[in-house]
Write a protein that binds this DNA or RNA. Structure first.
Lengths: 214, 214
DNA sequence: TCGCGTTAGTTATACGCTATAATCGTAGTC
DNA sequence: GACTACGATTATAGCGTATAACTAACGCGA
């Protein structure tokens, strides 16, 4: 799109950065963020330790970058599904598949906040992007107003939503979609249903159902 | 209760262990689990490094112990509230207060699973203890059967519930209580509502309300 | 084509952490 | 009152992040 007037050096730099991130993802996928080791990445890349600091200021900056990418990935998946006709239930399914395909990536975004990480401005922008899709989907589905205190509150606090004409009931539903699915998903991914013999997919489906019914 | 026929050595040992855990909690409360340092604890205790390994086999074992204590604390809080007459909404309030009083402790239990930690058998027992209280509370409140696929599934998978006479609809409600409250709480504690201007307590109240209404 | 500045990479180093080993003193125990 | 087991110490190994100092190569402009 934009004029890619990049020097060879800049292109090489971008490629190495991408390779670093790729290896970082591989490491995260198997061991989680806390075990992410710059040294190990460097070794796998054939270079030694401190060389990575040419490309990332430190561990925190790399993690921040990975978080940004994860948000981007989820936002793209949701947006793509919506653009190809998915309804609310379809979006829920996409979110779940995305989470299951790489639990550590999910936790990187929605899990325990990593200390030393400061959310860059654009991640909240991407997060809002996801919410925008959800809002559109619920508006299309049609949501009756419940007149709850929460709706009244949301009516006055809509700085996170682009279109000012969206009914508060829709906002409420989109938020609830988020919190409820996260509730089931994160507990499932953390293995809390493991010892109970419960099928998490049924729990998930039940929540999605409730989201559409009431 | 039990005959505490402990030698002075055993009492000393127990006291030091308690002090270690106490300092560990202090550290966790401020910086989170990932930054928990045995060395720092030892220094604050006036002893040096490796001495701690007399009391805990390693970092993981200490963390496991802390997780156990956290579960115990939550279970006690819920149980105490229930025994003094709290209903479902009251229990929800107690859980939220417990979580807000020490977010890191909450994440220790319900956040991103810590690598290297293996759930000891008794934590799932304590978890079931909490569920038992929830089940009792919902049974007392009265829950209509919805005949959902989830209920049918739960009817056949109730190894995690003590009393076999509990209706599946109650089990479903107790589980939903868990997942929904966790959904709102964990996102709130992680600061995901921070930039939106939304009052998390209203979101939480709305979920509690929905739990009782439908 | 030559030279200069930028940049990627190296090794060396400092520091903090977990964890084990070897050792020593002492406080309970019989 | 002697023995022993336990607590605590130092020393050491290994891994991690991060910085500093230095070297080599690369590309750009004269």
């Amino acid at each position: 799109m934009d004029a890619d007037v990049t020097s060879p050096r800049e292109r090489y730099r971008a490629q190495v950065q991408a390779e670093i991130k790729q290896h970082a993802w591989g490491q995260i996928a198997t061991t989680g963020v806390s075990a992410l080791s710059l040294k190990a990445i460097a070794k796998h890349l054939g270079m030694s330790g401190p060389a990575l600091y040419r490309y990332f200021a430190g561990r925190d900056e790399l993690v921040t970058e990975l978080i940004r990418d994860a948000y981007r990935s989820l936002a793209d998946a949701v947006r793509a599904a919506y653009d190809s006709g998915a309804d609310v239930a379809g979006l829920a399914h996409v979110v779940r598949e995305w989470a299951l395909s790489d639990p550590h990536r999910y936790f990187l975004i929605y899990g325990t906040p990593v200390p030393g990480y400061r959310a860059p401005a654009d991640t909240t922008a991407i997060s809002n992007e996801i919410m925008t899709v959800l809002i559109d989907a619920f508006r299309k589905a049609g949501v009756p107003s419940a007149g709850s205190p929460l709706e009244a509150h949301l009516d006055g606090h809509r700085e996170w939503v682009a279109d000012p004409s969206v009914p508060a009931a829709v906002l409420r539903r989109a938020l609830t979609f988020w919190t409820r699915l996260h509730g089931v998903l994160s507990l499932e991914l953390a293995g809390h249903f493991g010892g109970m013999g419960i099928d998490p997919s049924l729990l998930f489906a039940d929540e999605v159902d409730g989201l559409l019914r009431h």
